[in-house]
């Protein structure tokens, strides 16, 4: 495929897909609640509206707040560049899993500083909970990625997702995919952990952290989050797709198509899950995350057993 087509398809997916995913989640939820709901394009309009508003900043803030939104988005873009979340990418650098995990941490570091910059108790409590949640989720994500690396014998994500003979270890793909999916729910504060649709007192993590953001800052924060959601969903969708051994033999554009459909299906699944599941009490969250860790551990151990060198 020519490089221009590759570039344009990649840029389109990276810009269009994140809001679309969120739109699909919202639409699914609305349909399940017997509402018509906003169109799936609504997040685009919301984002557009945000860019036109005037920005309000707290007078307590120093510069780090605006820096944090920018660094957050750019780190997430770098991650979207690193992680082979769609099969067609203009250029795939060597994406080491540990670097990826620590880049996520970099994004979090700045988001946390930004949340605490205004001195608002909302932001700080959101940050404190985010930190706690992340502390629990990090090992799960790390182990899930390690299990994938074990079967590919390389820590490079590019190598992992182009590896082609998997008939014996489909269980690893399944477990790792599940683990990444559940991790994304916890990390991004979606339903069993936190309710993203309410405001302030009821939503404990993300909305509280973005309380002081407005206009374009809010735009950057929201887009960062959508992009992160899409990255996680795409990774887990790919894991699920690779259970089917024939996936690796398809042509790249067929793979691309399948992955994109997979991402949308995952988004619909998130919507269904959010309509069915109740929010967990905050103290029960560690227990929920412990199950994710269990899935990851199983995945690592199965991968170790599947690795021929055992």
């Amino acid at each position: 495929m020519s490089s221009i087509a590759t570039w344009s398809s990649y840029l389109l997916t990276v810009i269009i897909f994140p809001p679309l995913c969120l739109g699909v989640v919202r639409k699914t939820k609305a349909r399940l609640q017997n509402r018509v709901g906003p169109a799936v394009w609504q997040p685009f309009f919301d984002l557009h509206r945000l860019t036109k508003k005037r920005e309000t900043l707290s007078d307590t803030m120093c510069g780090v707040f605006r820096l944090s939104t920018v660094v957050g988005l750019s780190t997430t873009f770098a991650l979207a560049w690193f992680i082979p979340w769609v099969p067609i990418k203009p250029w795939s650098p060597h994406a080491d899993i540990f670097t990826v995990i620590y880049l996520f941490a970099l994004e979090r570091f700045f988001t946390l500083l930004g949340a605490m910059d205004s001195g608002s108790a909302f932001g700080a409590f959101g940050a404190s909970r985010d930190v706690t949640l992340n502390l629990l989720v990090e090992p799960a994500l790390c182990l899930a990625l390690v299990s994938l690396s074990i079967i590919a014998n390389s820590t490079d994500l590019g190598a992992i997702f182009s590896f082609s003979h998997f008939s014996t270890v489909s269980l690893v793909w399944f477990c790792a995919g599940t683990s990444i999916f559940l991790t994304s729910l916890a990390e991004l504060g979606r339903m069993p952990v936190d309710d993203p649709t309410t405001h302030l007192e009821l939503t404990m993590i993300h909305e509280a952290m973005t309380l002081e953001a407005s206009a374009r800052n809010l735009f950057l924060l929201e887009f960062t989050r959508m992009l992160k959601l899409t990255l996680f969903l795409a990774l887990s969708a790919q894991c699920y797709l690779r259970i089917w051994a024939g996936f690796a033999t398809l042509a790249p554009f067929q793979q691309e198509l399948l992955v994109l459909i997979g991402v949308l299906l995952m988004a619909i699944f998130v919507g269904i899950l959010e309509s069915l599941v109740v929010k967990l009490q905050w103290r029960k969250v560690p227990e929920f995350v412990a199950y994710i860790v269990t899935v990851s551990l199983i995945s690592v151990f199965v991968a170790m057993a599947g690795n021929t060198s055992l």
Partner: peptide, 23 residues
């Protein structure tokens, strides 16, 4: 650095902001 600068100049640089107290 590249994406940060791009984001900054695309979105935040020329925008006028209003100062207000923390909520």
């Amino acid at each position: 650095i590249g994406t940060s600068l791009a984001c900054y100049f695309l979105f935040l640089h020329p925008v006028k902001t209003r100062k207000y107290v923390t909520w």
